[in-house]
Write a protein that binds this DNA or RNA. Structure first.
Lengths: 217, 217
DNA sequence: ATTGCCCCTGAACGGTCGTTCATTTGGCCG
DNA sequence: CGGCCAAATGAACGACCGTTCAGGGGCAAT
């Protein structure tokens, strides 16, 4: 068997759009999102993406400098919106760390349920970007994590959170990482066709989170 | 720029072993683990793997039928051991669901810290296996998840767990998924050179988990 | 009608891929 | 020492990759 076409196990036959009404650059972005999510960046070819929106391979380079830039473009826009959504949620939740944390979790989980294709690509395919392009995305992720850490710090200082100790200290950064892992990977298994809604997911995760950090009732 | 070699951003120069003492099949497995973890299955070439253990590309096919089979081999062995470790941990923890759950989390997290290269490959690269080969691994994962669900069910029945409700019901499967996501992805960021030991990580996660499911003290 | 411009086409380029296979190697047994 | 065979070699094969580019079409402005 020679160089068989590599596909993810969840792959479905690429759907060729009969006629695109959107401007080509947005059709390309959408097609790339779909294909990267289903099959993974390295095995999705430029020809695949362009065929999915009814064009030929060369046309990509009228809109993006390279396949790399296309990936960075769609990840960066997703990440930027996520950061904005998170900060808005916290800003509009008053001053109680419990309300802040709950609002953050709800916004974060809800978004990862609703836009799970985008979240999946942003989280799974980021490793293919070269070091120059990945820097701003990593910065944005650190910023989001630091928002969580700040809420935890405030809650501990106010005495409304009592998170577990780690070897005698409180490692709030490790706790934030553990929580973010949990919230993020909803996008890996949540399906809107299931029997549980996005709002219920958000509520469940917010509840588990507040318990995990020892929030006072 | 034409077909530049695709690397993950965390990639380091492949180290060529000067002389392998292990039997070749094990050297191949080890090299493949390392390379798949660092750079990802689709971009690691057969030539890369074999060069890393001091052989040439053709020699792979004296030990494995294909690159696919090599990936399945290393994932399946990791997964099998994980399932065994989890079941042993539960079996040796008495009958209290709290002790069972804590033992499970500790074993699971400890393993994902210690063998994070293996865990990373098993969790990130599984999607490249074809449907036939992936079935037994998915079965093993479901089995592990069901162990968690069974502990939760027992704990709720005994009245020692009081997990959050989801839209009026108790969705213990969703809770198990959320917890497993959290435990699993330790392998994505835990570094043994950090200031927190594996045992401390295991303790932290066990503590957060028991709080999240509302374990009575 | 003509120009200019944007966008698209599709062949072509140089390269890498997984896999095969005829040949060579090297150690062990008689 | 000679024969044997598992294991390794490295060239070769057919296929596909990202990217380039000369050519062409459509449409608004002149």
């Amino acid at each position: 068997m020679t160089k068989r076409k590599l596909v993810r196990t969840t792959a479905t036959a690429p759907v060729i759009v009969e006629r695109e009404q959107r401007p080509p650059i947005e059709a390309i972005r959408a097609a790339a999102f779909q294909q990267f999510a289903e099959r993974g960046y390295p095995v999705v070819t430029v020809r695949d993406i362009m065929k999915a929106c009814g064009l030929t391979q060369g046309a990509l380079y009228n809109h993006f400098k390279s396949k790399d830039e296309l990936l960075h473009d769609i990840i960066a826009s997703t990440q930027g919106e996520l950061e904005r959504v998170c900060q808005q949620a916290v800003a509009g939740a008053g001053d109680d760390p419990r309300a802040k944390l709950a609002a953050f979790v709800r916004a974060y989980v809800m978004r990862h349920c609703r836009l799970r294709v985008e979240a999946l690509v942003a989280n799974r395919e980021i490793g293919w970007l070269d070091a120059g392009r990945v820097a701003d995305i990593r910065r944005s992720r650190r910023a989001i994590r630091d928002v969580v850490v700040a809420i935890l710090v405030q809650g501990v200082e106010n005495g409304v959170f009592d998170p577990p100790l780690t070897g005698g200290r409180r490692d709030l950064k490790a706790i934030a990482m553990a929580l973010l892992d949990q919230w993020t990977h909803v996008s890996m298994w949540y399906g809107p066709d299931g029997e549980i809604t996005e709002e219920e997911m958000a509520g469940l995760y917010a509840n588990m989170t507040l318990r995990a950090v020892g929030a006072r009732p």
